[in-house]
Each structure stands twice: as C-alpha cells, then as structure tokens.
C-alpha cells in the first residue's frame, strides 16, 4: 500500500502514460484512489462522493498536459477543486460597526473552545483591539477558573462569572463591564454541549439573540471523524454560525473534517489551532489544506 496519494496515482496511471486524454475508463481507477484517500482522511462519506463526482466532471476529456503525468494531472484538479471548496482566500474576523464586538465560541465538549478563546484574546490584542474574556461555562468543573487563568497569563481582563449565574445574564453583564473597562471585543466561552441536546442548544440560541455577536464560531477538533457533518450541520442550523475554527492541527490528523464542515455549512474555516499555548493560533490558508488532507 502507498501512503501517499501521488504515489498511488502514479502507479494506477502507469499504464496510461503517453495517452492523450483522461477518459471515463482510465480515470475510474485514479478516482477510486482519490476516494480512498479522502475517506482515510475522515472526509465524510457523502461529501467524498460529491467531491469525486465534481472532480470527475472536470477531469473528463481534459488533455493530459505534456509537463504532467496523468496522476499529477488528477492531483492538480483535486487541488484546485479543494481550494475552490475551502474558499480561495483567508477570511478575516468581522467586527461590529459600532459598539463592542462579541465573538461567541461554541462546540462539542473538549473541542478546544476555552483554549481558543485565550488564543483569540492574544491575537486580537496584537491587531490593536482590547479583548475581554467572558467565561459562560457554568457547568464543567473549574471551567471558569480555566479561562480566568488564561486571562491572567496574558494580562487580559476576565469577567468574574460564578457558577450560580445564568449564562445569558453573564453575557449581558459582561457587556456593561467591558464598556466600563474600555474593552471593545468580548470573547464568549460557552460550555461544551452535544448538538442534539435541545435544552443546551436553546441556551445558545438565547445568548445569540441576546447579545447579537458579530461572529459565532464553531470550534471543532481536527481529529473528528465522520460525525463532523452532523455536528456542524446542527450547530449551523440552530445558530447560523459565521465560521469555524479547527483545533489540534499540530497533530498528524489529516483533517478531512475541514472539508466536511465546509461542505455542509458553507461557512469559512477562519483559524486553525496548532498547540496548547496562547500563541498557537494561525489564520487558515485554504491552499495548504488540500495537500494535508491528501497526505502529500
């Protein structure tokens, strides 16, 4: 078995070398390899199916360029298709035209919301904004402590939430406190929850209605498997997310979830998390994702 898609493609296309065009017959084997690579990268089954049929439509009848092997040609089409899917440029954060901006972080348990809130505070300060960290997770043991400590590490102010407060009330009070402190961007760290937990999803809907955030970011783990489409689809359906963040990209996960989440929500991947430190956040560049997913 080849680990690498380009080796696999070169091997299936070996017999094809020298032929003029990619045809229905000769491309089938190549696409099979692409499909396997997508599934191994955790791209959702249905998403992979659609990607393959798009690639096939584009590839059929294309002249094999002199300078490329058919395998390279397929990879070129796959790369272009991926980049098109992921959006061709980095998407900046949006800020409120007037008044303070709220950025709400939502997602499953343990996906990296609190850590990302800390990282965004660092990032925002670097671009000249005044962040305010708002712990809204009143459920998980020591969740408020966690964000408070991250704030202290960076000397970023943190709203003094307590576990007996109601999440929406915390957000509303934090808005007033931010104004008093001269902070212009609130980072709302919500508790992790399952997308199918109706009560807790309704809580997020209420917060969103109550504070009208400029960004509602879904924070997802890069290691997520096939379920990414269900998770993202449901969070987007209920909260109309503005984008997503993929965490734990410093590992060796292929990160096919990026493609799945993008395909199901149409929302941009704005940042990737690349470590546990407050500085380990990078703007996402769509062109780099495809080679990672394909393991090249």
């Amino acid at each position: 078995m080849f680990d690498n898609l380009s080796d696999r493609l070169d091997s299936v296309f070996k017999k094809l070398k020298g032929h003029g065009t990619l045809t229905e017959n000769n491309i089938e084997d190549g696409l099979k390899q692409v499909r396997l690579a997508l599934l191994e990268a955790d791209v959702n089954y249905k998403v992979a199916k659609n990607v393959i049929s798009d690639i096939k439509a584009r590839a059929l009848g294309q002249e094999v360029m002199q300078s490329l092997t058919p395998g390279q040609q397929v990879i070129k089409i796959v790369n272009e298709e991926f980049t098109k899917m992921m959006g061709s440029t980095h998407q900046e954060l949006s800020f409120a035209a007037t008044g303070a901006t709220s950025i709400m972080l939502v997602g499953l348990q343990g996906s990296g919301k609190t850590t990302t809130a800390g990282k965004l505070a660092h990032f925002l300060r670097k671009i000249g904004r005044k962040p305010y960290l708002v712990p809204v997770d009143v459920y998980r043991p020591a969740a408020i402590d966690q964000l408070t400590k991250l704030g202290k590490q960076m000397d970023v102010p943190v709203f003094a939430s307590t576990t007996d407060m109601k999440p929406l009330k915390i957000c509303q009070d934090a808005k007033l406190a931010a104004r008093d402190l001269g902070c212009d961007t609130l980072l709302i760290d919500t508790a992790g929850r399952l997308h199918l937990d109706d009560t807790l999803m309704a809580e997020l809907e209420d917060i969103k209605k109550g504070i009208n955030p400029a960004e509602t970011l879904l924070v997802a783990d890069a290691m997520t498997g096939q379920d990414a489409v269900n998770i993202a689809g449901e969070f987007d359906k209920r909260l109309d997310i503005s984008g997503f963040v993929l965490t734990k990209m410093d590992g060796d996960a292929r990160g096919g979830a990026a493609l799945s989440i993008k395909a199901v929500t149409g929302k941009p991947l704005k940042f990737i998390g690349v470590g546990e430190k407050n500085t380990a956040l990078e703007p996402f560049h769509p062109d780099r994702m495809s080679s990672r997913i394909l393991g090249m």
């Binding site: 955790d42 290691m223 997520t224 498997g225 060796d252």
Partner: peptide, 11 residues
C-alpha cells in the same frame, strides 16, 4: 478515546 475521533485514533 473520544467517540467522535476518526482515523487518527489508530496513530
């Protein structure tokens, strides 16, 4: 292991 994990759990 988190049940939402994909193929990376093998590694």
């Amino acid at each position: 292991i988190d049940a939402t994990t994909g193929q990376n759990a093998l590694s």
